[in-house]
Every structure is written in C-alpha cells, then in structure tokens.
C-alpha cells in the first residue's frame, strides 16, 4: 500500500475473499478486500448492513465456519506472520492475546453462568498461565481500568445483573487483559444509547492513548467514524469502495456511495426539507450486479459501469475510491453538500 506514513504496519490484508457456499449459490460476502492497519491507529470500517464488515473482522481471526471459506489467494499477515498458513493452534494463541475482539451484542458474548470476574480471569489463565489468585486480581484491575465502579464487588456479579453499557465494558476488559496489539470492535456501541455510546467511545480512546493499541472499529454510523477514526474504509458489496484519512473522507468524499450516505443523514438545523436518498437497497451477496456493484443505485452510472468493474485506485495520494468517475469533476447535482 502506498502510504507516506512510515508507521509500522501491524496487520496487512491483501485480496481477502470470504465466500459462503450455500444452497442458494455462492455468497461472496467479502470479495477482494485489501488494507493495512498501523500500530496505534484507529481504522474505521463503515458501511450498511450486508456490506461485509463483520465477515471481514471474523476472517482476520480465521473464525469462519463452513459453508463459509476464506478462498485461496487471500493473504492476512499480522506482525509479519502469515495467518493463512499458520496452524489452527498458532491462530488460537493469537486470539484474545495479540488480537482481541469485542462484539456488538454484549449479552450473547458473555457466558450467563459465570461471574464476569471469572470470565475476565479466564483469559489471563488461558494465555498467561496465571494462577487463580493472580488471574482474579488481574480481572479486578482490568474492570477498574475500564471504569467499572467498585470493581471488586462487581467482579462477583453475573452478566444479567449488569446493564448493556456495563457488559460492553466487561467485554472490553476481557479484550484488554493480554494487552493486545490489535483490538477489533464490531459495532461495539450499536446496541447502546447515545449517552452510553459516548462513554464507550471515550473509553476506547483512552485505552488507545494509554497502551498504544491499534483499533479496527466497525460501525455503520458516520458520526462515530468522524469522532473516532484516523483512517476509514467504506465498504459496499463485499469490497472496499473508498479508503481515506478521516479528514479527507469527510472533506471530499470521492465515491458516489459515500456521498450518498452523507447526504442521506438527517442533520440538525437543516429543517424539515426532504432528505436526499440512495434509491433501492443493498443487493444480496449471491447476486452482486456485474461491473460496478453499486451501479443499480448510483446516480452517476453510465454504460462503462455495467461492462467494467472499477478498481480501487488512488484519486489523490492515499485517498482511493473504486469508481470510474472518481477524481473527475462531478456534476453539481451529485457533489456532496
């Protein structure tokens, strides 16, 4: 990847393709995704549901079950190690250790029959071989680190005794036990209210400042992206359609899909004018349109878009878009407002 930044590349993904071979056909959920994550940065992955964000995240940890498969030719390198050729055991040792993950639904990610303290301690015991006592102390320390008041007492509670925000903090605590180099957070605030979302985003930022953890933050909320990201991947149809530094993305979105998303959001102060919309819906992953996958919803589509699939190309340095017309001056009507 052409990055002027010399920061250390932690994770490098090239041509990742994860397909689900279902009865209804091959669902090409992730289809040729490439990106880098640098140490200590926050990379946001944004897109509507069905665009392949979660499957990308799960693929990074090789957590894809049949009928899903990471297709041959995909390359995932973490800290210089090739994860595609690594043994299952090697990948297992990375999970929860060097790479940790936080999910959207905090309740289903926690085991209801163990106390949260036990579950956090468990991670230390697995990866560190810590003694029961030491692991428990570490759990309490982690719970306090993620801002759970009275952590010693809270550690003895069960997941159902906690609110959604608290549970998400517990999951973050579990993810941080081993001080991972990379934290993957899949919609960690989607199930939460705005005020709790603000708490969790604040927590992630402070964790990053303190430990230098790199974060892949998956979201569908461009507001969250603007608040949290250093760099952004916009996904559509199992592909990256735009990749840019956060400022560049919002200052001059290049892909018609990104522009559409920004226009479709209601804004305070805009009054009650009609919103601009993207017509139609995301097609199913078994039937992406030929050529450009966005073409049946794109206001700028022309004949070439049907014939030829656009490549992800740099419009300006380190700002790439997958569109035949990106970089050329746009008609006024389509320009971002």
């Amino acid at each position: 990847m052409s990055t002027p930044d010399s920061a250390r590349v932690l994770l490098s993904v090239e041509n990742l393709r994860t397909w689900f071979h279902t009865r209804d056909g091959v669902a090409r959920a992730v289809d040729g995704v490439s990106f880098d994550v640098r140490a200590g940065e926050t990379l946001c992955v944004v897109g509507e549901s069905g665009s392949g964000k979660s499957v990308t995240a799960l693929s990074l940890l090789r957590l894809i079950d049949p009928p899903g498969r990471i297709e041959p030719g995909s390359r995932i390198a973490f800290e210089g190690r090739d994860l595609m050729t690594a043994t299952e055991e090697e990948v297992r040792r990375l999970r929860g250790n060097r790479i940790a993950m936080v999910f959207q639904e905090p309740m289903s990610a926690l085991n209801p029959v163990f106390t949260v303290g036990d579950q956090v301690a468990e991670v230390a015991r697995i990866h560190d071989g810590a003694s029961r006592r030491a692991a428990w102390d570490r759990a309490v320390e982690m719970l306090s680190l993620v801002g759970i008041p009275d952590p010693a007492a809270r550690a003895r509670q069960y997941p159902h005794e906690m609110s959604g925000g608290m549970r998400q903090r517990v999951l973050i605590a579990m993810a941080l036990v081993m001080n991972p180099a990379l934290l993957i957070a899949d919609e960690p605030t989607t199930a939460l209210d705005v005020t709790i979302q603000a708490q969790i985003l604040e927590l992630l930022t402070s964790v990053q400042e303190r430990f230098g953890t790199a974060i892949i933050l998956i979201t569908h909320d461009l507001g969250v992206v603007a608040e949290a990201a250093d760099r952004v991947l916009v996904m559509y149809g199992g592909q990256v359609v735009e990749r840019a530094a956060v400022r560049d993305l919002f200052a001059s979105p290049q892909h018609p899909y990104t522009q559409g998303l920004l226009r479709a959001m209601p804004r305070v102060g805009q009054g009650r004018d009609r919103l601009l919309t993207i017509p139609g819906t995301v097609p199913p992953p078994t039937a992406w349109p030929s050529g450009c996958r966005f073409r049946d919803r794109c206001p700028l589509a022309f004949d070439r878009c049907e014939r030829e699939a656009p490549e992800l190309t740099n419009v300006v340095a380190s700002h790439a878009a997958r569109c035949h017309v990106a970089g050329t001056p746009l008609p006024a009507a389509a320009a971002s407002s």
Binding site: P149, S163, G165, M166, V194, T195, I196, Q197, A198, Q199, L201, E202, D221, L222, G223, V224, V225, A226, E227, A229, V246, R247, F250, L262, M265, V268
Partner: peptide, 24 residues
C-alpha cells in the same frame, strides 16, 4: 444538554467537549 452533546457529529474537524454522563 447531555443527550445533544453525545450525538456523534460527522465532522472530524470538530472536536467538541462532550458532557459524558456518568453511569446508567
């Protein structure tokens, strides 16, 4: 006031001081 300040704003240039409410 807290609710309004918690809305994430899709504008990276604007780093605001949020009122982050404590607790649930």
């Amino acid at each position: 006031q807290a609710l309004l300040s918690a809305i994430p704003v899709p504008d990276p240039e604007r780093k605001r001081n949020r009122i982050v409410l404590a607790g649930d």
